[in-house]
Design a protein around this nucleic acid. Structure first.
Length: 224
DNA sequence: CCCTGATTCGC
DNA sequence: GCGAATCAGG
């Protein structure tokens, strides 16, 4: 299928949006993943993290032994290109810092933002071909528990407050804002206070005389 | 093996 | 210019 302007534009948008070549090919229809990648390269919009791109190592020992079948064909057809290929592999690899620097420079001269070429449907702004969109800011770090204790447990016993002398019976549920520990003085020799030792260590009653056990601190219904 | 993007090269 | 074949990392 031919690369019409609409399809090329669609390809550009999805490529810059971060969709994979397979997804783009499926979306466009009538083209393969390789066709999308090849077209993207010809359009000049490559980059994007590639699993193969991040190598450029092994610049010393080289790998003379490789693909004897294809190598023979290539050698007879295009020996010169193969030499160039080898020579390019041997070139000094650009450092990651250099890549980062270059990427920053591409954006540095235009602190005013990308040039707006036109306004597309829905109000989104089209950018010029040479304008790389600003790097996606990294997602803010997330915590399972708040960095600062919430007000509900400001005067409660937190994980950091635990020691050998206070009851570590959990109150409420881990991960919830009001989760804390009992904090009472322990029953000497036990990790819990007298009351919670009564919950944690129960004498076995004779069969038939057992009552339903109290809810467990974890997993069961709320216990206070 | 599956996925990914990069690259090569016959057409 | 196109894209299948191939490479190579995850």
């Amino acid at each position: 299928m031919a690369w019409t302007d609409e399809r090329i534009d669609h390809l550009k948008q999805m490529w810059e949006k971060g969709l994979t070549a397979s997804q783009i090919a499926e979306e466009l229809g009538g083209v393969s993943r390789n066709a999308v990648i090849g077209k993207a390269h010809r359009l000049g919009l490559k980059s994007r993290p590639s699993p193969v791109k991040a190598k450029a190592k092994t610049a010393k020992g080289a790998k003379p032994a490789a693909k004897p079948k294809k190598a023979a064909v290539k050698a007879t057809k295009k020996p010169k290109q193969k030499e160039e290929h080898v020579a390019r592999r041997a070139m000094p690899p650009p450092t990651p810092a250099a890549r980062t620097h270059a990427a920053q420079q591409s954006k540095m001269p235009k602190p005013d933002g990308p040039k707006i070429v036109s306004v597309g449907p829905g109000g989104f702004l089209r950018q010029g071909p040479g304008d790389q969109q600003a790097p996606i800011p990294p997602a803010p770090p997330r915590r399972l528990v708040p960095a600062k204790p919430s007000e509900e447990i400001a005067d409660k016993t937190s994980l950091l407050d635990l020691n050998d002398r206070i009851c570590r019976w959990p109150m409420n549920h881990p991960g919830e804002p009001d989760f804390h520990f009992c904090g009472e003085e322990v029953n000497p020799g036990f990790p819990y206070c007298v009351e919670h030792c009564g919950r944690a260590f129960q004498a076995q009653l004779p069969r038939g005389a057992r009552r339903a056990p109290p809810p467990l601190p974890f997993g069961g219904p709320r216990v206070r």
